[in-house]
């Protein structure tokens, strides 16, 4: 008992810097977003009227939000499994004691050096239908690279955004999974090997379960990132192509240059809060779903 109280002053002193920063730059704006979500404000966001919590459900039910939610979920459904499988695949591939493996590891983690902005511009350049390199190379097999262009075809625009996003996230996933792999005690493999397990069995029975904390972490990160996709859309497609608005994600609906709620603080806040709640629900579902399955190494 005494010990617990004795630790209070130092704990407080050590936590105050982080807590103050988080309070001012994360908690305060979050609370304000909830409050502003119940308001109707002028374009400067400074003169507001109360319209009540009803606004959240109105925004949720609006066809624009429903559409953007669909796009965001589709994007997550494309990027999360693909990012995860590729990340694990690359990490397992490179988790070998081979001469020169360092080169391959650097190659596989290289996309971590590109920001979302840089990665999107890279793909923008590559996929440009008239002069892009990929369009030139592969248009014989995939005609839509030229006509009308991957990013301008309503059917392929979202997958193209997903491609850029997966590629950009690959380096980070690779590094985290590689770290996870290196944390697996080698004797587990030895005993599985002695038990006569083939390489696939060793992968499914040793590697995957032991990797589950890293996989959980990556799943949560990739899902959050997918739901918050903005810069890729802004730089690659501008939310289009129209009229399908195939790549208007929730963040782009809120902040995009052709957003219809661009200068409407109340609706923007309500939509942003809903996005937060959706991310939260996903994270909780993922944590709970994994809880019983995750193998924490002891």
């Amino acid at each position: 008992m005494k010990r617990r109280l004795r630790d209070v002053p130092p704990a407080l002193a050590m936590l105050v810097p982080s807590m103050a920063l988080l309070a001012v730059w994360t908690v305060y704006p979050l609370v304000m977003a909830f409050i502003n979500g119940t308001k109707s404000c002028d374009s400067t966001g400074r003169r507001c009227n109360d319209v009540g919590w009803q606004q959240f459900s109105n925004v949720w039910q609006s066809r624009e939000f429903q559409h953007a939610l669909g796009v965001s979920l589709k994007l997550a459904a494309m990027t999360v499994p693909a990012g995860l499988i590729l990340g694990v695949g690359l990490a397992v591939l490179a988790d070998k004691h081979l001469r020169g493996i360092g080169f391959f590891r650097t190659a596989f983690s290289s996309t971590v050096a590109t920001s979302v902005a840089v990665a999107s511009l890279v793909w923008f350049v590559l996929l440009q239908p008239e002069i892009g390199v990929l369009s030139d190379l592969f248009h014989e097999w995939i005609p839509s690279l030229k006509q009308p262009g991957l990013l301008r075809d309503p059917g392929t625009a979202l997958p193209a955004v997903a491609l850029s996003s997966v590629w950009a996230g690959l380096g980070f996933t690779f590094i985290v999974i590689t770290a996870g792999l290196q944390g697996i005690p080698r004797d587990l493999y030895e005993s599985a090997y002695v038990d006569g397990a083939g390489s696939w069995r060793r992968f499914t029975n040793v590697t995957l379960p032991m990797l589950s904390p890293s996989i959980l972490f990556i799943t949560v990160v990739l899902t959050t990132r997918a739901l918050q996709t903005y810069a890729e859309v802004s730089l690659l497609t501008g939310g289009g192509p129209n009229p399908e608005k195939s790549t208007t994600t929730i963040p782009y609906l809120i902040y995009g240059r052709n957003s219809v709620i661009q200068n409407n603080l109340g609706l923007k806040s309500a939509a942003a809060v809903l996005l937060f709640v959706i991310s939260l629900v996903f994270a909780i579902v993922q944590f709970r779903g994994f809880e019983k399955r995750v193998q924490y190494a002891r």
Partner: peptide, 11 residues
């Protein structure tokens, strides 16, 4: 369940 436009909300 949606239908209305997002700017058609509130007062």
């Amino acid at each position: 369940s949606g239908g209305d436009s997002i700017t058609d909300t509130g007062a």
